[in-house]
Amino acid sequence: MERLPPLNAIKAFEVAARTGNFTLAATELGVSSAAVSQQIRNLETWFGKQLFVRSGNRVALTDAGHAIYPQTARALGDIAAIGRRMLEGGLRTRLVVSEPFSLAELWLAPRLAVLLDAFPQMAIDVRVEDDPVDLMRQNIDLRISYGDYHYPGLRMVRLIHDDVLPVCAPDFWQRYGNDASSLADVHESLFIHTNWGPNYASHPTWADWFSASGGSRAPDPSHGRRVGLSSLAIVSARLGLGIALGQRAMAHGDLEAGRLIAPSSVSLRLGHPYCAFMPASKAERADVAGLVALLGAIPGKVHSGFPSGIAEKQT
């Protein structure tokens, strides 16, 4: 057998490179910061290369560190996957997907249905949770997030950059819009406002929409209907509870089926794209790559079958 580098040092290197911090690496590994530093020194001695540039508590990979990180992460991920499969009693792969609450029902579920239609025996675990999550510790294959800034150490693929537009039920518009009125005539109480929460400041509001459409109206959220999820805003609009600024990707199915209509074509782009994050060791797996391709597909193409080449990758 070829000479191997010290495996404990390789593990310490992978965690330190992923977290960018020896203290965080020590916490994850259950050892002291000094022990992590010693393992890194051992590995640097073994390779004869400096792997990190140290700046206080933070560390950054050198060129040599960047050169070996992808392979070490992939190798450790493969070893961990073997262990999980054996403990589960077989070699069957389980796809673990983590996503925000707002994407679960209206956006991810239809795409998972396409994936499972092609591979009905695939085991999938869907976890709904807020950022940040620890993909390595929680054994997550794929994390979907709003924005491209949450997980700098992981492989990232930009999926879609969504926009919002007014949506409501046909009966609602016939009743309150009278099929001829503009949105400027809709009563203040009938607007659905999405409360994105304290962590988000880049989502457009009704005031932004009216400004973009050439108006000056600014509906007061305290006088209308407020919901805490973008998906709930769409469901509320579908049920005739008001008119919402709905995300196009989430409302697509309802718009296609006629359950929702868009009284105006004016739309506003969200502040950030939705992105997929995955450990480098899992990015080339057929099920992971296949789902990423589906998530980035044009909404109208989702139900017409797999994007080209996905089925052929599955083994």
Rank of each mutant, 00 (worst) to 15 (best):
E2C: 02
P6I: 02
I10N: 10
F13E: 08
A16G: 08
A17E: 12
R18P: 11
R18T: 15
R18L: 15
R18K: 13
T19I: 11
T19C: 13
E28W: 07
L29D: 03
S33D: 15
I40Q: 03
I40E: 03
R41S: 13
K49W: 11
N57S: 12
R58F: 08
V59K: 09
A60F: 06
T62N: 10
H66T: 06
I68A: 07
Y69R: 03
P70S: 06
G77C: 01
A81V: 03
G89E: 03
L95Q: 07
E99N: 06
F119I: 07
D131H: 03
V133Q: 13
D134L: 03
N139A: 11
I140T: 14
I140C: 11
R143C: 04
R143D: 04
D148W: 02
P152Q: 12
V157I: 15
I160E: 14
D163Y: 05
P166T: 07
C168M: 10
P170G: 04
R175V: 07
N178K: 04
N178Q: 05
S181F: 10
V186T: 12
H187E: 13
E188F: 05
P198N: 01
N199W: 09
A201V: 11
S202M: 00
H203L: 11
T205D: 04
A218K: 13
G224D: 14
R226L: 14
S231M: 12
L245H: 02
A249L: 08
A251P: 10
G253F: 06
D254K: 01
L255R: 08
A257E: 14
L260D: 01
I261W: 08
S265D: 15
S265E: 15
P273E: 05
Y274T: 14
A276H: 03
M278Y: 11
P279F: 06
R285Q: 14
V288H: 05
A289W: 01
A289P: 00
L291T: 11
V292R: 01
A297L: 00
I298F: 12
G300R: 06
H303N: 13
A311H: 02
T315K: 08
T315G: 08
